[in-house]
Amino acid sequence: MKRTELIMGMPITVAIPDRERMDDVGPQTRFATVADAADAVFEYFRAVDEQFSPYKPTSETSRIDRGELSEAQASPEMLEVLRLSEETRKETDGYFDVRFKGRFDPSGLVKGWAIYRAARILDDDGFISFCIEAGGDIEVRGANDEGQPWAIGLRSPFDPSKLIRKLALPGCGIATSGTYIRGEHIYNPRTGSAANEIASFTVIGPNVYEADRFATAAFAMGKAGIEFMAARPDLDAYMVEWSGTATYTPGFARFIQS
């Protein structure tokens, strides 16, 4: 089973091998079929969108942004996102900040966090194998329909219809940050460079939440991002420059299938 819906302004795909619910399932499971499970995942993303979208005036994000809701009045989910945002801001030395120009927008963190939480819904129901992808970031579990490791393609930043690498992934998370428009620059105060030489930055981590937040921060760092990743034993990365050169950490090599 593989289904895609457009939620949060991006395509979200849930893939679950049919074998996952072919055996008798215990009474403790909520989902009798893989389709039921996918429904629940999509429903979760719709709820996250209602709560966190900066484009919906009624969302909790918008209410905090307008100052109608204080952080003390925030929901437990929002408090968790605020806590993770602050943690990420510190870990990336300010490269990642949900507050800028007096506005509040945690979208950069919510995507990875939501995918990870959605995966937990399936984990908790006993699913061994599945993939949940939202806007190019993926949480991976178990094996695909053929019983093989999930085959994940890396999209070419030069031609979005093409792939540059085929990866075989175990249980982990993968996220890519970047832009497909050359010249969409990013200012790096540390080097004084206004141009970003980096076309895309892919991170594989223990889960998609970790991969996503570090892919975003590393992309903002420019070429130093790959060295930052090489120094993190829990993360591996593949960086593509506009020059056509790719650089990756040694640990990334074990995921490359072709």
Partner: peptide, 15 residues
């Protein structure tokens, strides 16, 4: 492949 990892307009906006 089963799925593709790549940047989206969402992350582009975040950038």
């Amino acid at each position: 492949v089963d799925l593709i990892s790549g940047a989206t307009f969402t992350s582009s906006a975040f950038v």
